[in-house]
């Protein structure tokens, strides 16, 4: 059953990435050099809309809050994000869109995926010698979220109901998506 879900949800995600134009590196590069914010608007709207609904439906018990999976916050998250950002800007691909771009027949995506496999292998090989270093020093307790919503994870702002806080943040993302100019 989980394999059937993997196929359905994977197809849907790939379809969405392609249809929104995220598999086209031109759109990513133009977003990052602040020339064409189409994709930025779509991403902000997607995060705001899905976040608001997620907390609402989880609060109502329609979505199982046990499905939340919050990743740990540590120094390497910021540093790794920055390394990824450099490659992302030059290539116009991130791991998901680079793979999905293969379906567009993009040959440069093939080289991106090849480099990605090598990068992941290099990390697999060096991990043993960097684990336990300052790179993995936790920030604010590690696996934490701003809004309360899942019992497994600590909320940074427990005083405010999670649905309300996530709703305010989500609506702010959606308004920002709407207000940002398309072309800069």
């Amino acid at each position: 059953m989980t394999i059937v879900l993997a196929i359905i949800l994977g197809l849907f995600f790939g379809f969405a990435l392609q249809r929104v134009g995220a598999t086209n590196p031109q759109n990513i590069i133009n977003m990052l050099r602040l020339k064409d914010l189409h994709l930025m608007k779509a991403i902000l709207f997607a995060i705001g809309f899905s976040s608001t609904l997620l907390f609402l439906l989880a609060g109502l018990g329609i979505i199982d809050a046990g499905h939340f999976s919050v990743k740990s916050a540590y120094t390497g998250v910021i540093l790794g994000g920055a390394l990824l950002g450099l490659g992302f800007a030059v290539a116009g691909y991130c791991p998901g869109t680079g793979l999905a771009a293969l379906a567009d027949g993009r040959k440069d995506a093939l080289f991106f995926v090849g480099g990605g496999l090598l990068g992941a292998l290099l990390y697999t090989l060096v991990y043993g010698s960097i684990k336990g270093s300052w790179l993995f020093d936790k920030i604010a307790g590690g696996k934490v979220m701003l809004a309360a919503g899942a019992d497994k994870y600590q909320a940074l702002v427990p005083a405010v109901p999670g649905v309300l806080l996530a709703g305010v943040i989500g609506v702010a993302f959606m308004v920002l998506a709407w207000k940002l100019p398309d072309k800069a």
Binding site: K71, S72, Y74, G76, V77, I78, L79, G80, G81, A82, L83, L84, G85, L86, G87, F88, V90, A91, Y93, C94, P95, G98, D108, A109, F111, F112, V113, G114, G115, G116, L117, L118, G119, A120, L122, Y123, T124, Y127, L135
Partner: peptide, 17 residues
């Protein structure tokens, strides 16, 4: 260029988790 960018992107992503 994209090959080297791919190395950076996935190394960075794995470091970030």
């Amino acid at each position: 260029t994209v090959f080297f960018a791919g190395i950076l992107v996935l190394f960075g992503a794995r470091l970030a988790g």
